[in-house]
Structures are given as C-alpha cells and as structure tokens.
Amino acid sequence: MNTLALVRLLHLASPTLPVGAFSYSQGLEWQVDCGAIRTEADAGAWIAAVFDAGIATFELPLLAAQMRAWAADDIAAVLDLNDDYLASREAAELRAETVQMGYSCLQLLKALPECAGVAARLADRGDIAYPTAWSGAAVALGVPVEPALTAWAWAWAENQVMAAIKAVPLGQTAGQRLLMALGEAMPARVATALELPREDWSNFAPGLALASCRHETQYSRLFRS
C-alpha cells in the first residue's frame, strides 16, 4: 500500500470522522446496566464475543464483498449487499445506528471532491448502511481490501472500548490493555473474512440481539444503542 493510501485509510478509520460513532455502544451499555459487565475482564470478554459472533463472520466479509463490487463498478451488487446488511441488523437500534452513520458518511462524501462520485452513485437509493458508504470511499481513495478490513475492525474495537471506559467505567490504561488484546485477534479474523464465501457468513448473535432489545427500554442511557 502506498503512503497516500495509508493516509487515506487512517483518515477513514479515525474516531474524528464526523459520523457519530461515539454515540453507540451496540448493547454494551445494557450489559453494564444489568450487571453482566462489571470489570475490565468482563468488558473484554463481551467485546471479543460480539466481534467473533458477527463483526468477523458477517460484517468484515460483507465489507470485502462491497469493496470488490465498488472496484468492479457493480452498483447493483453494492446495493444488494446493502439490503442484506440492513436486513441483518436484528434490533431497531442496531439498524438505526447504521442508517444514521451511513447517512452522515454520505453527507460527508458529497462534500469531498475525491469521493463525490460515490455519493452520486448512492443518491436516492433509500437507506444506506454505513459499510456501503464507507467501502465506496475506501475504494475511491485507493485503499486495498485487506488493510481496509483491518482498519474497520480496529475502529469498531476502539469505539467499543471507549464506550466501556465511559459506561463501566474503566480507566484509560485498562482500555489500552483491552485494545492490545483485541488487536492481537484481528489478523487471523481478517484473513478468514477475506476468504469466507457468502453462504458461510454468520450473523448469529442471540446475546447481542437480546442486549440490544433490552437497551431500547433501558431507563437511563448515555448511548443510542
């Protein structure tokens, strides 16, 4: 990967990308509220479990497939995968999260000349999931698939750990230890995701589904999912 592509990838994976990622915990806040997460170890176990039960086995391979579709300029395939991703969001808040982030990402891409073509292709197509817009930007900016998946996984983990630091709460050093452990698992998961055929993707995560359902009616909340 050339240095400019690396810069672009760091840009896309940055927590300062204005898509609102920081406002979502994806069920983690419920796990804290119900007492299932009390410690650094509990938080690490939950985040690793969610990563393995859906991010690594569904979201990453779908992101790779969308990047390949963008590279082939196959917008029908991009949108078919967009439908599948939205349909795979198993609770209202998880769906609302990706639709809001997809929308915000699209607004951003419209304003960036390097990515405006992606935004034009997705205009007036109904709800756009975040991976759909983000994968288009990554391809337009010359980012290869494997590092893109790695950065996506990292950005997700970083956001989850930040949510845990606020919600549990945990100290900053505890958060950094969690990120070290989560990062270590990523290369093997990314390598698997790159090869996983669509019929073997798995988004079966009943624990996440239940946590997300219950978060919808949680009385006091910091996060929107």
Binding site: V50, D52, A53, A205, G207
Partner: peptide
C-alpha cells in the same frame, strides 16, 4: 431470509458448530 416486494428485509445466517466458542459466548448462546 424474508423478502418483501423482492427486497430482503430480514436475514439471518447462523453457523453453529458443536465445538464453536459461540455456544458458550456471552454474545452467542
């Protein structure tokens, strides 16, 4: 998979191996 008017609105693919960590995982079973 559930489609409405030709578009997928629900999709779940579950791959559950007997020796998989998913069986014991808090996000899984």
């Amino acid at each position: 998979r559930i489609r409405l008017g030709g578009r997928t609105i629900w999709l779940e693919q579950a791959r559950i191996a007997g020796d998989a960590p998913l069986l014991g995982s808090v996000a899984g079973l």
